[in-house]
Design a protein around this nucleic acid. Structure first.
Lengths: 196, 196
DNA sequence: CGTTCAGTTGACTAAGGTCAATTCCCGTGG
DNA sequence: CCACGGGAATTGACCTTAGTCAACTGAACG
C-alpha cells in the first residue's frame, strides 16, 4: 500500500488517528492516473471528489471573456479540489488540468459524508481541513486587496519558489492578477533596479 | 432568553440539534454591549472570540501604509470574527470596529473547542461553519481576481444593497479595492452612461 | 452661521492593458 | 548537425483606468 504513505503522513499532521480509523479512510480512496492535459474538473460540473496528488501537478483556472485566468497551482503531496463546489454541491466554474502525467487518490462526496457520520475523527478532520483551506484562501484574499502586483510577485517568489521552476510565466501572470506582458515588464523593472 | 432567539434560528439553518444540545451551546454564550467606535479586535491581538451580532453593524479593516482598507462589513444576524486568527491562534492584523452601538453574543476559543470534543453536533457545526465562510471568502477572491472594480461595484449593489444604505462610500471604495475618488468617478461614469 | 468631514471634481501621473512585431527557446525532421 | 517551426516571452507604441494631490461643494451639527 505504498501509494497511501504520503497522504497518511499528510493527514497525520492535522490530527492523530488509530490504525482502525485510518483503514476506514483508506478504504475509500481510489487511485487514478491522468495524462498531461487531462481534466480533473471542467466548468459546469459539480466537483464530486477530493483529490490528493501523489505525482504530478495541476493548474486551476477559470475562463473569463475568452481568456483563462489561473487562480491556483497544486503540486504532489497536496490536495486539489474546488472545495466550494464540493461542499455546496453547486456547479463549478473551474477547470482543473494536469500539467504533466499524474497519479492521484480520490474520495467521493458521498463516501466522505458517510465517513463524517461514521467516525468523529473524520468529522473533526473535515473541520480542520476546511479551516486550513480557509486560512490560505483568506491570505490570498488579502494579498489581492492589499498588495500591488509587484508585491504579489515578490511574495510568490519568496513563498512558493517551486512555482517558478515548474509553471510557465503566462499562468503565473494571471495568478498575480495581471497580463503576461505586464509580468514581463515588472520582471524587467526589478532586474534593472537590482543592477543599479 | 430572548437574546438567543436570532442565533438559535441562524444555527438551525445549518444543522438540526436537540434542546439539550442547544443548552450546551447557549450556556457558553456571553452577551456584551459595545458603543459606537469601540473595537471588537485590534491588530496584533489573537482573535479569541466568535461573535454573533444581535444589534448593530461592524467594519473590519487593515491598516496598510498608513491608510485603512476595509475588507468586510457585518450586520446583525451574522457572525463577525477574524476566523483565520481564531483558528490558527496567530495574531490578527485586523481591526474590527462597531459602526453603531451594538449588542453581541460571544463564545471563547477554549469554550468552543470544549464543545467540539463534548458533542458531535457541535463538531459538525464547526465544520459546516468553516465551509460556509470558505465559500464566501472564495467568492470574494474570484471577484477580486476576475472582475474590474466597476463590476465589483455593480455586483455589490445587487448582492448587498444594505451596505450602501448604511456604510459611508469611503469604506465601500476600499472594500472594492479602489480609492474613494475612483469610486466617485465610477459612479459618475455609470450615471452618465445610464442617462444617454 | 461657521466648522467639519464626506463626497466630488479637476489636472496630472503612474501602472497595467492592448495589439503588433520581434526575439528566444526548444523540439523535430531533413 | 543544422534548419525550421511554433509557442513563450519580450519589447515597443499607444490607450485606458486608477492613483495622487489639491480645490471645491454640500450636508450635518453644534
Amino acid at each position: 500500500m505504498e501509494e497511501f504513505t504520503i497522504i497518511r503522513k499528510y493527514i497525520s499532521q492535522f490530527l492523530p488517528f488509530t490504525e482502525d480509523e485510518w483503514q476506514i479512510h483508506q478504504a475509500l480512496l481510489v487511485r487514478r492516473f491522468l495524462k498531461k492535459g487531462e481534466f480533473l474538473l471542467k466548468g459546469g460540473e459539480v466537483c464530486n471528489h477530493v483529490t490528493f496528488i501523489n505525482k504530478g501537478h495541476f493548474r486551476a483556472y477559470n475562463v473569463i471573456d475568452g481568456d483563462d485566468i489561473t487562480f491556483n497551482f497544486a503540486f504532489e503531496g497536496n490536495y486539489v479540489t474546488d472545495y466550494t463546489s464540493f461542499v455546496s454541491r453547486r456547479p463549478s466554474t473551474d477547470y482543473i488540468v494536469a500539467m504533466e502525467n499524474a497519479e492521484i487518490l480520490q474520495l467521493t462526496y458521498d463516501d466522505l459524508q458517510a465517513a463524517y457520520e461514521k467516525s468523529p475523527v473524520w468529522q473533526k478532520f473535515g473541520r480542520l481541513m476546511a479551516e486550513f483551506i480557509l486560512i490560505h484562501i483568506s491570505q490570498r484574499n488579502k494579498a489581492l486587496l492589499f498588495n500591488t502586483p509587484e508585491e504579489r510577485y515578490l511574495n510568490l517568489m519568496k513563498e512558493r519558489p517551486k512555482v517558478f521552476e515548474r509553471v510557465p510565466q503566462q499562468y503565473i501572470a494571471s495568478y498575480l492578477g495581471i497580463k503576461p506582458e505586464s509580468l514581463s515588464r515588472i520582471r524587467k523593472r526589478l532586474m534593472e533596479a537590482k543592477k543599479v
